[in-house]
Nucleic acid binder design. Structure first.
Lengths: 218, 218
DNA sequence: ACTAAGTTCGAACGAACGTTCGAATCACTT
DNA sequence: AAGTGATTCGAACGTTCGTTCGAACTTAGT
């Protein structure tokens, strides 16, 4: 975690060392806090979690937290933005060089579920607290979400074209997101399969569902 | 709305007229409050909504609300229980006399989506606030959820048997629930199709997905 | 018209909320 | 060892929270 570090309070700690070795002390500590906060938000929800809960979980005083971010809302924003940015970035890397639409969609699903099961708290907070942010914070996350959505629409439209299929891309994409995101309500790592197998099963259901029957008329 | 009316405060108003004409004044007023509260919970979330918000929305004083229910948590419980009970009850009525597994599953999906789109606030509160209740309240709603889940598992197992299919029932059912319940995050009545058409498209994706390929080995 | 139960409300309770502030402590450089 | 900026914290701020209480009002049976 830890985006390139933005000013925290009135006097921003200067970021010396522009390139090398990655994180400053400030960024590392912020990332720790974000990790603990994510776990608390997962357990109690954004509204249900108090700053005192976050203080306890991260082992830092209530006032101390405000040295790292200026409000509870901005903290949620940092979590959501980092999570969403990372998943999109990994997806792009994985899609590079792949051209078959079906394979691309399988990669999309695998990427999503792998990240989901590797970071269940972050992904629950991203999925379940989607309406908690307001105004500027909300629209910045919404922009990433729209990009992610559009990528998936693109892949499905490619598939339709390549195979001459006919179905509503919108319904298909949103159904797929539903299948994938709902996982946070039921997945149990002691019972359920790992990401690869889960992605395989969901990909099978979805792709067969969308590719069987209903060829386009022309 | 309005379950058979349980005692509200210290001295329970007596329910005269055991059978006829349905609702007492108490029950009718409670149902009105529940409707307004559902809308507020939908908009602000359970934790985010204050009793003062509910008071404003229902046009009743803050103190007045407590004549009808003893806590905010019980209010959410009443909403979730009524919603879930109703949807299960309607499903059972619709499944009666139908024996073909595929048709039954299509009915299951149609019933779910029709209720979802006809009562979007109730269904969002049911889906999104599933973890908000504690202890006794939580387990009573969980029991209904389990029954609903088991019905769907039964239908899918019937389908598997009838067609000699092979897939994980658990993953299939939970994927289906994901597709259906995720709707509250995206459905826009000015853009999207009605319940019947939506149910048709989702049923097609899901049933083809689950019925195509992968016949069992024996 | 009287009564008794059903219904509503203003005002207040203590607790918990997010946030702020100035002082104390820490980690470095010199 | 002194000095400087980065980091941490106890204590408090004003606000809002869920809930309670007793008094008032309304409704309906007689």
């Amino acid at each position: 975690m830890g985006s390139p570090s933005t000013a925290a309070r009135v006097s921003a700690p200067r970021r010396h060392r522009a390139v090398p070795a990655a994180a400053t002390r400030f960024d590392r500590r912020l990332a720790e806090i974000l990790t603990h906060a994510t776990e608390v938000f997962r357990k109690k929800g954004y509204e249900g979690a108090s700053m005192r809960d976050l203080s306890r979980a991260s082992g830092m005083s209530l006032a101390g937290l405000y040295y790292y971010f200026e409000s509870k809302e901005r903290l949620l924003f940092l979590i959501q933005k980092h999570t969403f940015t990372t998943i999109v970035q990994r997806l792009k890397a994985r899609l590079e060089g792949v051209s078959d639409p079906e394979t691309q969609i399988r990669i999309f699903i695998l990427n999503h579920l792998e990240y989901f099961l590797a970071n269940p708290a972050s992904m629950k907070v991203l999925s379940h607290e989607a309406e908690a942010l307001k105004n500027g914070f909300a629209s910045e996350v919404a922009a990433i979400k729209r990009e992610y959505y559009r990528i998936c629409v693109g892949l499905l439209d490619d598939l339709k074209r390549a195979r001459g299929l006919q179905f509503s891309t919108r319904i298909a994409v949103l159904s797929l997101f539903g299948m994938m995101n709902w996982i946070y309500t039921w997945h149990n790592s002691r019972v359920d399969a790992d990401a690869e197998q889960l992605a395989g099963e969901m990909s099978d259901i979805f792709l067969r569902g969308v590719m069987t029957g209903a060829k386009g008329r022309r």
